[in-house]
Structures are given as C-alpha cells and as structure tokens.
Amino acid sequence: MQLERHMDGDVTVIALAGSLDSATAPDLREYFEQLVPGRSAVLLDLGRMSCLSSAGLRVLLVICRQAERNGARLTLAGVPAEVRAIMAATGFLEFFAVAETVAAGVQALAA
C-alpha cells in the first residue's frame, strides 16, 4: 500500500494505492493519526485500491470515526466498483460520505 498526500485548496487529499488488509491497515491508521489535523476536510482517494479485506474495512471505519471525533470531515472518492460492492453488502458503505470522483469530493468538502 502506498499513500500520497496533497492539498487541494483547504482539502487534504490522500490517495491510497494497493491492498488495504491486515498487513497494511495499521499503517493507514498511524498515517491518519499523525498527518490529519483536526477540524480539517479530508478526501481519501481509493481509485487505485486493489484489495480491501476485513481488517481494511474496519480501519476505514475507525479512521472515519476518529476524524469525526476530531472535528474533521472525511469523504471517500473513486471507490472501485468491486470495493463498493463489498462495502455495500457488509453495510459499511452507509457509514461514509462517498463521492464519485476526486473532483466531486473536493468540491463537496470545500462547500
């Protein structure tokens, strides 16, 4: 898993590439704890995510809840169809704000 971060206006955009599973989930959590400031707007771009496991689902929800507690707003964007289907079937999808594209997500968060 690789993570890249850039700013788009006031929105922190984090692009995740590769597999989010039990091996990489702790890294994502740590990354968020260290690099995402409170009361910010964060867009997590999953467009290049290759695989999402049980641990991956959970870490996404944990960082989302953590962000909410810190007053940040988190939106997912570019969720691959397969990943989206997994998240829908397990009920995880409804916990997230989801944008179709990164641009749409940034726009929604900036509004």
Binding site: S53, A85, I86, A89, G91
Partner: peptide, 16 residues
C-alpha cells in the same frame, strides 16, 4: 450465500 464470501466477509454480510 454471501456476495462477499470470496473475501471471507460472510459474517459481516450476515450481520448486516
């Protein structure tokens, strides 16, 4: 019976 069975997520899918 789980759409997510191949990912081993049948427990979550069932609970949902």
């Amino acid at each position: 019976y789980a759409a997510t069975g191949r990912y081993g997520l049948q427990v979550d899918e069932f609970k949902n």
